[in-house]
């Protein structure tokens, strides 16, 4: 008996909606995200440097955006899923005090191969738009 049976994996089809995920964009998330991803560029942790560079505040780095896309789709797909590709387009900057709302839709299903379209939108517009390729095994099988 597997402890990581992916819950409710039946019924995934093109058009299936992922539950929305709201992520508060805080200075803490931006700074800890940058340092945890080993990105020491000062615009991601030092407000004075960010403002001197012409932005209103520190802003989220791309590696954190990738990690949050990974988290969003992974929470939905479950621990048995394997991510094969994350392909994102970058848009409106994530600044502290904002909120990013993730929505997602299953774009295609071919056997265990599932492609999900994801959008993360903040108050300025889409921050990230992309696709995530997954292998989601049927219950009792491994990816």
């Amino acid at each position: 008996m597997s402890t990581v049976d992916t819950a409710a994996r039946t019924g995934i089809a093109a058009g299936t909606q992922l539950p929305e995920l709201r992520i508060p964009i805080t200075a803490t998330l931006i700074v800890t995200g940058a340092i945890a991803t080993r990105d020491f560029q000062k615009v991601h942790h030092d407000k004075d440097v960010a403002q001197a560079a012409g932005t209103p505040n520190v802003f989220m780095n791309i590696l954190t955006t990738n990690a949050l896309v990974n988290r969003y789709v992974g929470e939905w797909a479950g621990p048995a899923a394997r991510v094969g590709r994350i392909n994102i387009r970058l848009g409106a900057t994530n600044f502290p005090g904002d909120e990013m709302v993730f929505t997602g839709t299953v774009d295609s299903v071919d056997g265990q191969n599932v492609v999900v379209k994801v959008v993360g939108t903040n108050s300025l517009g889409p921050h990230v738009t992309g696709t995530v390729d997954l292998v989601i095994p049927s219950k009792g099988e491994s990816a």
Partner: peptide, 15 residues
């Protein structure tokens, strides 16, 4: 470092 990444992102996937 995996722990740091998960802590920063509030990532809870047990794998």
């Amino acid at each position: 470092m995996i722990h740091h990444l998960c802590d920063a992102m509030e990532e809870t996937n047990p794998i």
